[in-house]
Structures are given as structure tokens and as C-alpha cells.
Nucleic acid binder design. Structure first.
Lengths: 344, 344
DNA sequence: ATGAAAGCGCTAACAC
DNA sequence: GTGTTAGCGCTTTCAT
């Protein structure tokens, strides 16, 4: 069953059927009605590959993330997909696991399917592997790390805002010995978080003791290890700020095993505000980097680029703010029972 | 750049280029080499839509799940995708949120893209909405609920095996007042779990008190509510088995708020063994329904159906076992310090 | 073993 | 307004 079959039965040309389906306004209502009724009757659905072939538009966007099993990403995927469907786009999803081989194969698949744009939300720096896409002038959107080029957009994260709030929140609770567990420092995003922490401490005249800044790797296990090192060190922190939520969850886990009660003995703050942060016990205070918002920005960046006639010479920048969300993992240093009130 | 360009530069016909790309063995090595080198040089990638159009094979499978943000699904998506890529398939992913409208739109999109098969892993019963797919003889694979039809396969879950292990584990720890929090009972999978619980209790001569069986909805909030109802009831359970992990996490959360210590005062067991089960405090003992295995079965079912010449009249059944995974949320009823040893 | 050519299902330019 | 028709980029007979 194809467009000709419909044309025959509706006694019109294939062009009219095509116009009807694409809602071209010049089709007379009478004919349109006849065509639609045949379409309904036969349960006809146009063939996307054929449409894509002739129109030169696949209506597919690529979405590259690190790992769908990393709790940071599912919500991004969900929102991205929802918006895509609303705009009649399909998405080609790939988890690369930061494996260059998989990244390469993802790029090949995307080119073969002729994606109209790709969002690279890995926070990594596999930029080189994307040469093939750039060559083809496929619109790209990165987080923080995209090069200044036409058709390459960037979502800039304002790490400082939320981290400053976190530090000031801890300071307000009388904490001074505040530790920071970083992410893998080869990641620009991890480095930026660390810098934001140091700066925030300095701003309020607190010294960020180098012995209280240890490197993690953004996993729960990494958080556990890092916290163990912290405990073994010369200074016992009363609060610890983590470069992401999984790290913070590792700290909570390790604290529990070590008999340290949160928030009574130790205040903990995460970063990202993944959903899981609400589920742990106690619910984790975290610096929110809105995943829905990130997904929305990424999609809109691609869509804007696709629709733009003349691309900006250095791409476009978008800004994503971060904000502290208070829950129950922080308290006054005294260890008194005064818990910080829940925000929600 | 297209296949003609390659043909021209390699001084062969487009047919030869096509054969080379598709590794048809009759192409002479000399020509093949020439063709490949032109392909490399120009960075040519064949256009998938054109191939799909002429070959009639899209090399796309649909994957329908409830919600990617439900921690049960990310690993399934990950494994399904990985296997798909290995077989040069792409996947069209949809979260329906059990919303019939979204289900309908998903089906339409999948037909328009001419998917070669669809895995429906929603544990729901939106079967009616899939009529259009069945009409087109698209291979389908369900969990438990697929009708006996050609080209419709089923993955049958052996709920009893794991739930029996869970009940016997609790019994071995001297628990007798064992509660069960069900899922939404309109779901066949939730009903099957409940039945498995009742039967397991009966098998070992324990009475499943109806007042200890309450309905939840497979969410954390539902687990909290259900457990509250349990606490308000006439009998105080010493152990609670939950229809899924999120429910169990709700119970843990509520227990924490109520000052009930797990596993000292209450043993808790979940179902599904999502990754999150390892992250909560204490790590949750759970009945594992292997998500990688489920994904693998689903993919292979579709692939087998695509490659089968003559479909089995009533589809094919596959079996997925369940097994108890011991962690730290269960203990002897005495409340003594004897913790069950970790399995890993 | 290789090439010429038909055609997959659709859109869009052009003609009326 | 509506129809005719030439492709979109590829695979696949059918000749040779």
C-alpha cells in the first residue's frame, strides 16, 4: 500500500495525496476530505524513508550521552525525547561509556542515518572523534566544551552560582572545615566545579585547606574511597561538598558504615540533583543542574540551528544556572537537633 | 556525494560499488580495493534511508517501555541498544508512561519508520493499541501478556522461584508475621507476584494473614503509604516483602522516619533487583529479575522472528528465572546483632 | 565478474 | 487547484 494506491482510490493524483498529507493549503476541502477518508479506511501511513530521501531531511537528531544507567541521564533522555516527538523528530540514542570505539561507531551510524543535528552531553572531550560530523556541517551542541565554529553551539553551565550557595549555606550552619571531593580532573566540568568551590570559600574568607580537597571519580565507589582518605587525614571535616551526587551517596554509605550520622555528625551536599538524591536516607541536599532544562536547551539549540539560514560564525551560547536545593543532609555544626527545614 | 560519485572515481559501475559495500563475494579483489580506497578517501557513508527504501528493510526495532526514569529500565535500554548495534540495528525508543495517547503516537511513529519488530516491555496491557502493528505483521515481543498469535512472542517470568526463595529465607530467619505489599493489581505481573507470595507461604505451612497483605502501586510513595497502613493495623509484621524495589525503598524511608531500624527491627525484601538496590542504606535484599537477560531475550526474540521464514502459529515463549540476592536488609527476628552474611 | 537500467515511495517543479 | 513527471540514493535483476 502506497501513495499511488491512495491516489487511485480517491481518484486524484499522487501529488494531491502528498499535498493533503502535508497539509498544503491549496488543496480544495472536498478533495482533501476524500483523500483523508481513503487514508483512514486503509490505515495508510506514509513511508518515512521515502520522504526523507526525497526531501533530504531525516527528521532525526542524535543524542550522545555517557551511560543511560548513570542516574544523571534518564531524565535528560526522557525530556529530549518528549520534545523531539512534539516536533516530529526521532532520536538516535547512544551511550558511549566514554569509549572512543563506541563513539566512533555512533558517529558513523548517525551519519549513515543522516541526522540533522547531534547533542553531545558527555561532559567529555571526544571532540576529535566528531570531525566527520563537522565536515558534513551537521549542527552540534555541547556542554561547555564545544569549539567556536559555525553550527556548533554550547550550553554554558554557571557552576559558581549553585556552589557558592552551597558553601554559604554550610558557612551559615557554622561549618568551617569544609571538604570537597572532586570529580575526575581531566573533565573540564569537574575542574570547573572545584574552582567554583575554591573561589566560593575565598569569597567569604574561609581557607580551603588543600588537605580537605581530594579527588574522586564521580562514582559511588569513588566517593567511598575519597571519604575514607579524608577520614584518615589530619583534619576531620564537619561538612563535605561533592562534585556530584553519586559521590555524595558514596560518602553517605561510607559514613553509615563508619558510624557517622548524617547530618548530626557530618553535613553532606551533592551536585546535579539527580532524582535519586530524593530517595536516599536522609534525602540529599544538592546543587541542582536542571536536567529537564539542559535537555530543553540542547534540543532547542539544534532546532534553531536547523532552521537558521545563515549560521552564526562562532555558534550560539546558552546558559544554564545552578541552584541549591535544601533537603535533610545538612545541619548546624553543633550536632544539635536543629535540622534545616525541608524545602519541600 | 553518492554512490555514483564513488563509481565514477573508481571507474566502475554503481552496481560494483554497491556490491563492494555489501561484501558480495563475486567482486574481484582488485576492483574492491580500488572502490574501498575511494570510499575512504572521500569519507563516504551510504545513505540508510535509500538502502531501506529499496531493500524494504529499515533495520530498526522499536522498544516500548513505561518510563526511562523508572530505575528498572535504563539497564534494559542499555543492553538492548548494545546488542542492536552489534547486529546493525537501530532502536526507536519510547516511554509511554502508560498513557494510551503516547502509546498510540509511538505505534504510528514506528509504523512510519517501518520498524521490523517491536519489544513491548511495559508489563501493562495496552494490547489493543497495537492492532495496527499486528495488522502489518510486525513481529512483537511481550512480557507475559502477549496473545497467542503468529509473530507474537512472550517472555514468561518465573516469579515463583525467586519469591519462594525470599519467603523461605525469611522463614529461616524465624519470621512468621510476614507482610506483602503488592503492586497495582490490574497489572498481571503484580498479581502474579502476589499469588507467588501466597503460594510460597502456604507451601511452608505459614498463614498469609490478609491483614498483612496491602496494595501499593510500585512507587516509593506507594510503598510509604502502604507501610503506614501496615503499621496502623492490628498486627505488627517483623518482615515485609515488596512487589518491587521502589516499594521496598519507600518502606525503608518510612521506617527511618518512624524510628524503625532495618534490619534490626524489620526485615525488608524487594523485587526486581534494580541497581539502586545496592545503593540504599542498608543495601536491599531483593529478588532479581535480570534486566540484561530480559533485554537479551527480547532482542533475540525479535531477531529470530525477522529471520524466520514460516512463523510459529502461536509465537514463541521464552523463560526468565528469578532468584534471591542477599544483601543487608534482612536479619534474624530476634533483633540480635547477627546479620545475614553479605553475598557479595 | 561487471554493467545497464528499473524502481523502492515519496516530494516538488512545472505545466495546465 | 490539480496533474504529470523527474528524480532522491540505493539495490537488484537481467544481460553480457
Amino acid at each position: 500500500m502506497d501513495i499511488r494506491e491512495i491516489a487511485r482510490r480517491a481518484k486524484v493524483s499522487t501529488a494531491t495525496v502528498s499535498r493533503t498529507i502535508n497539509r498544503v493549503p491549496t488543496v480544495s476541502p472536498a478533495l482533501a476530505k476524500r483523500v483523508w477518508s481513503v487514508i483512514e479506511e486503509l490505515g495508510y501511513y506514509p513511508n518515512t524513508q521515502a520522504r526523507a530521501l526525497v526531501s533530504g531531511r531525516s527528521r532525526i537528531f542524535g543524542l550522545i550521552i555517557s551511560e543511560i544507567t548513570n542516574p544523571f541521564f534518564p531524565e535528560i533522555v526522557q525530556v529530549f525525547e518528549t520534545i523531539a516527538v512534539q516536533h516530529r523528530y526521532e532520536i538516535l540514542l547512544t551511550s558511549t561509556g566514554n569509549d572512543p570505539t563506541r563513539m566512533e561507531s555512533a558517529v558513523r551510524r548517525m551519519i549513515e542515518r543522516r541526522v540533522e543535528g547531534v547533542a553531545i552531553l558527555t561532559f567529555g572531550m571526544e571532540e576529535v572523534l566528531l570531525e566527520d560530523l563537522k565536515l558534513r556541517k551537521v549542527p552540534l551542541v555541547f556542554v561547555d566544551v564545544g569549539p567556536p565554529r559555525p553550527r556548533v553551539s554550547n550550553i554554558r553551565i554557571d557552576y559558581l552560582n549553585g556552589i557558592r550557595q552551597a558553601v554559604q549555606h554550610l558557612a551559615a550552619l557554622r561549618h568551617e572545615k569544609i571538604a570537597f571531593i572532586t570529580g575526575p580532573l581531566r573533565l573540564k566540568s569537574a575542574m570547573a566545579r572545584k574552582q567554583a568551590f575554591l573561589r566560593s570559600m575565598q569569597e567569604i574568607g574561609l581557607e580551603a585547606d588543600p588537605r580537605l580537597v581530594v579527588e574522586g571519580d564521580h562514582t559511588m565507589e569513588g566517593g567511598m574511597t575519597a571519604f575514607t582518605r579524608l577520614l584518615a587525614g589530619p583534619i576531620r571535616p564537619t561538612a563535605v561538598l561533592c562534585s556530584n551526587d553519586m559521590t555524595a551517596i558514596g560518602v553517605m554509605r561510607e559514613s553509615h558504615d563508619a558510624g557517622i550520622s548524617i547530618p548530626r555528625d557530618l553535613s553532606v551536599i551533592g551536585f546535579d540533583d539527580i532524582r535519586l538524591a530524593q530517595f536516599v536516607i536522609p534525602p540529599l541536599t544538592s546543587v541542582q543542574m536542571s536536567q529537564p532544562e539542559l535537555a530543553r536547551l540542547a534540543f532547542n539549540a539544534l532546532l534553531a540551528e536547523v532552521e537558521r539560514e545563515v549560521p552564526a560564525p562562532n555558534g550560539t551560547d546558552y546558559l544554564l544556572k545552578t541552584n541549591l536545593v535544601l533537603r535533610e543532609s545538612t545541619a548546624l555544626i553543633s550536632g544539635a537537633s536543629t535540622l534545616v527545614e525541608k524545602q519541600r
